[in-house]
């Protein structure tokens, strides 16, 4: 399992020493605006994994998250000429990512409501049960299965949070953003960040009560 990425603030993840130095976001944006299309490629390569994983935590669907990540970068591509340095590129990118996920979830909710009103139960199952939705567990070793079980528990808990609480807990605990950065991404006040994070944690305490009792020692 991969540990949390630290020091991602400002868009520069800590890299192994032997890796070639990456161009800074501002340099990449300036190069792209000046006509260097490889600069955009570098931005995508630098952030695709983080954007994809944020989408995955938000929508819990690998295929949809892949499409959403593409949509995010398409928007970045189209909007980057208007990007102002009021916020860091990293914050701006997350703002687009969060909005894409929320839009998707709203559309999905509307669609589910429409389907449930217009069709009989089971009718839509052909669409839902795509091949990609069924994980292949055949060759996963036992330890990985245990970790997977924990991952499933956590992801299920995250999925049960409301969108507002979900996004804030992901930005804080998974991405490691500060309150100020979260406030920028969500265009809300620091006070709102503080109170929503509290509510998200209260809800998670309830949802993960069993897990927390088993892992009492892990806080040391």
């Amino acid at each position: 399992m991969q540990k949390k990425q630290t020091a991602v603030v400002g868009g520069s993840p800590i890299l192994p020493q032997q890796a070639p130095p990456l161009r800074k976001d501002d340099e990449l944006i300036a190069s792209f605006k000046a006509g260097d299309s490889t600069a955009f490629d570098d931005l995508v390569l630098k952030y695709e994994r983080r954007v994809y994983n944020h989408c995955l935590r938000m929508v819990s669907d690998e295929v949809e998250s892949y499409d959403l990540a593409q949509e995010v970068f398409l928007k970045v591509f189209r909007k980057i000429k208007n990007y102002e340095h009021t916020y860091s590129f990293y914050t701006w990118l997350y703002r687009i990512t969060v909005n894409c996920c929320i839009d998707y979830l709203r559309k999905k909710r509307r669609h589910i409501q429409e389907v449930s009103l217009s069709s009989s139960p089971g009718e839509d199952q052909g669409e839902v049960c795509k091949d990609q939705d069924i994980p292949d567990l055949t060759f996963i070793p036992e330890t990985a299965l245990v970790n997977q079980e924990l991952g499933d528990t956590l992801n299920a808990a995250i999925a049960q949070l409301s969108e507002k609480l979900r996004v804030i807990i992901i930005l804080k605990e998974v991405e490691g953003f500060t309150y100020e950065e979260i406030a920028e991404v969500l265009a809300c006040s620091r006070g709102t960040v503080k109170s929503r994070l509290f509510r998200a944690r209260e809800r998670l305490k309830e949802l993960l009560a069993d897990y927390m009792n088993i892992h009492r020692d892990s806080a040391k």
Binding site: M1, Q2, K3, K4, Q5, D41, V44, L45, E48, R49, R50, Y52, N53, L56, R57, E62, V63, S65, Y66, A69, Q70, F73, L74, F77, N147, L150, G151, L154, N155, I169, E173, V174, R201, L204, K205, L208, Y211, M212, H215, R216, S218, A219
Partner: peptide, 30 residues
Amino acid sequence: KLQRIRNALTSLASTPPGKRPILEALREKL
């Protein structure tokens, strides 16, 4: 308790995006 929740959430694996690089799909779309 807050620390336990944090420990749990930071242990969540980050997965690579799908079988095909996003950049490739993006180039095609553009």
